[in-house]
């Protein structure tokens, strides 16, 4: 566990400064922030566990529970709305059989809303496991899911 946690406090400033990078590392390795990591991060950064929980809870990126094997993030912001994003969102929710913010029953896909992926000139946009896709239609989303996530 401790290999994840080497706080690169800039210029030796506040020890807490390494907390976000450390949380990113734990989540990149484990997919979520487990209880043990919270305790260890608290010790390493001279914080209470409650303070670490407070930081985790504030940021959309961090999760305390494991999510699905894949994460589909669908942009719900204005530019994508102007290009059929709402219909695409309904479609994604229907074909996956899951609400936004939840994981499919088989644990395959976690469906998430995101507010802007910076792909507004190719709206609507989604991101599957860090891979950005643009000009997505319900049909191309189906094709993507079939190709990338054989279930």
């Amino acid at each position: 566990m401790s290999t994840h946690i080497s706080p690169p406090a800039p210029d030796g400033a506040a020890p807490q400064a390494g907390l976000l990078p450390a949380l990113h590392r734990v989540q990149a390795d484990l997919g979520h922030i487990p209880d043990a990591a919270v305790a260890e991060l608290a010790r390493a950064h001279n914080l209470s566990r409650a303070e670490v929980e407070g930081v985790i809870g504030f940021y959309h990126d961090f999760r305390r529970q494991p999510a699905g094997r894949h994460t589909l993030r669908l942009c719900r912001a204005e530019s994508c709305q102007a290009m059929g994003g709402d219909a695409l969102a309904e479609h994604a929710s229907r074909v996956l059989g899951v609400e936004f913010g939840a994981t499919t029953a088989d644990g395959a896909v976690h469906l998430e809303a995101v507010y802007c992926l910076g792909n507004c000139a190719c709206s609507p946009a989604v991101m599957l496991d860090g891979r950005l896709l643009g000009r997505v239609s319900p049909a191309s989303l189906d094709a993507l899911l079939a190709e990338e996530l054989p279930r």
Binding site: E78, C80, Y115, G118
Partner: peptide, 10 residues
């Protein structure tokens, strides 16, 4: 750069 409709920074 979190504003929808912006991508010049990216």
């Amino acid at each position: 750069e979190g504003d929808s409709g912006t991508f010049s920074d990216r």
